[in-house]
Amino acid sequence: MNGQAPTHAPDAAVIEALARAALARIPEPFARHLHDVVLVVEEFADVETLNALGIDDPFELTGLYHGQPVGEKSAFDSGTLPDRIHLYRRALLDEWVDTGVSLEALVSHVVVHEVGHHFGLSDDDMHALEDGE
């Protein structure tokens, strides 16, 4: 960069690059379970997803894991969609502006949180881990 502030909000490609970098930093043995996880960057969660989660404001959802946690998978699973981590660009950008946290740190936090769901951790489990409990 030339020292000037960016004139456009980061696009989906920037968010995806930050997310892929965050995934690349996840250590073994966890990393070996993430190779088949699909990363999807969308502007907002769709209405069906928001309704299913009881969320009225699409800016409240920055990321979501869709899939079956690692411990619940079976060799007999077939015909299912791959596990996916969805990141919602507009909600991420809104939180980035509101919190002042770097976009890289925010995207990394959301990715790690959604990876936690991939491994079967609940939101409460992850908050306890983050709080050092």
Rank of each mutant, 00 (worst) to 15 (best):
A13Y: 12
G116C: 04
P27S: 14
E28N: 14
D125S: 06
F30K: 13
D46R: 07
E43S: 05
G71M: 07
L61R: 01
A9R: 15
V111I: 13
L50I: 05
H86W: 08
L34S: 01
N51E: 12
P10F: 02
A17Q: 14
D124E: 13
V112Q: 08
E60W: 10
T99E: 10
D125L: 04
H35N: 11
A52E: 12
L61N: 04
L81A: 12
D131R: 12
Y65W: 14
H8W: 12
D57W: 08
N2L: 15
E130F: 12
L23D: 01
L121V: 06
H33P: 04
D83G: 05
P58Y: 01
L53A: 08
G120C: 10
D124S: 13
D56G: 15
R20V: 02
P58L: 09
L129C: 09
D36M: 00
L121D: 06
D11I: 03
G132Y: 01
R32P: 02
R89V: 00
Q68R: 15
L18Q: 08
V111H: 02
A75E: 04
V38S: 04
P82H: 10
G54A: 06
E60V: 00
N2D: 10
L50Y: 03
R25K: 14
A21S: 12
H127K: 12
Y65Q: 01
Q68A: 07
L87A: 11
L34D: 02
E72K: 07
H109G: 02
A45D: 13
V97D: 12
D98F: 03
I15H: 10
E133A: 13
A5P: 01
P29N: 02
A45R: 11
S102H: 11
V97G: 01
F44T: 00
S102G: 13
D124Y: 08
E72P: 03
F30N: 02
H118I: 13
H117T: 11
V111C: 05
F119R: 00
I15R: 01
H109Y: 12
G100R: 03
G132R: 07
F119T: 02
W96F: 10
